[in-house]
C-alpha cells in the first residue's frame, strides 16, 4: 500500500527503436500539485498516455491511491480515480456542454438497460442527481450558463475549461492536465492558475500538470519533474529547477548555442 495518490515507478515504452519514455518515476502525495515540463518531444504527453492506459507501459508499475493501474484498461484506470485533459482538445463536439460533463459522471452510476427503457424511479433519481452535480461542476468555471450550447461552438478558452470540468466530473483522485493554458492570454492564464488551485481544494484532488508556460508552472507547482528525450533529468522545487544546469542545457541546447530563456522558448513552442 502506498501513501501517494499517484505513484509511478520506472515506467517506459518504446515505439520501434525509439525509446519515447524510459524509467519514468513520479510520486505525488495526496493533495499535491506537481508539474511535468520539458522541451518539445521530450515525452511528456507520452508519459500521460502511459499513466492513463492509452499506451500500456512495457516496464514499471503505476499505483493510483494504492490501487495498481498499469495492468488495467483505460476506463478502469479512470474508474480507479485517474482523470485527464487532452493537449489537443478532445471534447464530444456534437454533444452539448452539459452532456459532455454528464458523460463523465457516467461511470459513477449504474446503467441497466431495463431501467433506462422503463424509466424507473431509480433511473430518474440518478439522472437528476447527475445533472445537478454536473451543473455544480460547470458552475466552478462559470460554464453553467452555456450548458445547452454545442461543445464545438464554444470559444477556445471555454473548451479548455470544459475539458477540466469534464475531467473533474469523473470524481478523480488524481487529475492530469495536459497544457491547460495553451493558447490563453496572460490574464486568462492568471485566472486559470487561481482556478486550478481552487479546484484542488474544492474537489480534494491531486494534480499533475504539463505546461509550457514556465511562469504558471513555477508559480503554482510544488515540485517539478523535467523530461528530456524520454529521460527524467531533474526533479525538485521550482527554485531548484530554475538553477539546475542540466535543465538549462536541455532547453537551450548545447552550451553557448542559443540564447533564449526557458520561459521564452517554451512560450513560443507551445
Amino acid at each position: 500500500m502506498s501513501e501517494f495518490a499517484l505513484d509511478a515507478q520506472g515506467i517506459g515504452i518504446s515505439f520501434g527503436g525509439l525509446k519515447a519514455v524510459q524509467d519514468f518515476s513520479m510520486r505525488v502525495p495526496a493533495g499535491g500539485l506537481y508539474g511535468l515540463i520539458g522541451p518539445n518531444g521530450a515525452g511528456k504527453t507520452t508519459a500521460f498516455n502511459l499513466l492513463t492506459g492509452v499506451y500500456s507501459p512495457q516496464s514499471g508499475q503505476v499505483h493510483v491511491a494504492g490501487q495498481r493501474t498499469d495492468t488495467l484498461r483505460p476506463h478502469e484506470i479512470a474508474k480507479a480515480g485517474l482523470s485527464r485533459t487532452f493537449q489537443n482538445i478532445r471534447l464530444m463536439g456534437e454533444l452539448s456542454v452539459l452532456d459532455n460533463v454528464l458523460l463523465a459522471s457516467h461511470m459513477r452510476g449504474r446503467h441497466s438497460i431495463w431501467r433506462t427503457i422503463l424509466r424507473t424511479p431509480r433511473f430518474v433519481a440518478q439522472e437528476l442527481a447527475m445533472k445537478r452535480r454536473a451543473m455544480e461542476v460547470l458552475n466552478v468555471f462559470a460554464l453553467d450558463r452555456l450548458a445547452d450550447e454545442q461543445a464545438k461552438g464554444l470559444p477556445y478558452g471555454d473548451q479548455r475549461r470544459l475539458e477540466i470540468c469534464r475531467a473533474l466530473a469523473t470524481e478523480p483522485k488524481v487529475l492530469l492536465l495536459d497544457e491547460p493554458a495553451a493558447g490563453m492570454n496572460p490574464s486568462e492564464k492568471k485566472t486559470l492558475a487561481k482556478s486550478i488551485q481552487r479546484v484542488r481544494e474544492m474537489f480534494n484532488v491531486t494534480i499533475l500538470l504539463i505546461e509550457h508556460d514556465m511562469g504558471l508552472v513555477m508559480d503554482i507547482c510544488e515540485k517539478i519533474t523535467v523530461l528530456d528525450h524520454g529521460v527524467t533529468i531533474a526533479v525538485g522545487t521550482p527554485a531548484e529547477i530554475q538553477a539546475n544546469p542540466k535543465v538549462i542545457e536541455a532547453y537551450l541546447g548545447e552550451p553557448g548555442e542559443a540564447a533564449t530563456s526557458p520561459a521564452q522558448d517554451a512560450g513560443g513552442a507551445a
Binding site: T52, G53, V54, R73, P74, H75, A78, K79, S83, R84, F86, R90, L91, M92, G93, E94, L95, D99, L103, A104, H106, M107, R166, A167, T170
Partner: peptide, 15 residues
C-alpha cells in the same frame, strides 16, 4: 454518442 465522437476521450472518461 461519445464512442462515435471520440473513442479515446470516451475511454478516458470511463466509458
Amino acid at each position: 454518442l461519445s464512442i462515435r465522437e471520440d473513442e479515446i476521450a470516451a475511454r478516458a472518461m470511463g466509458v
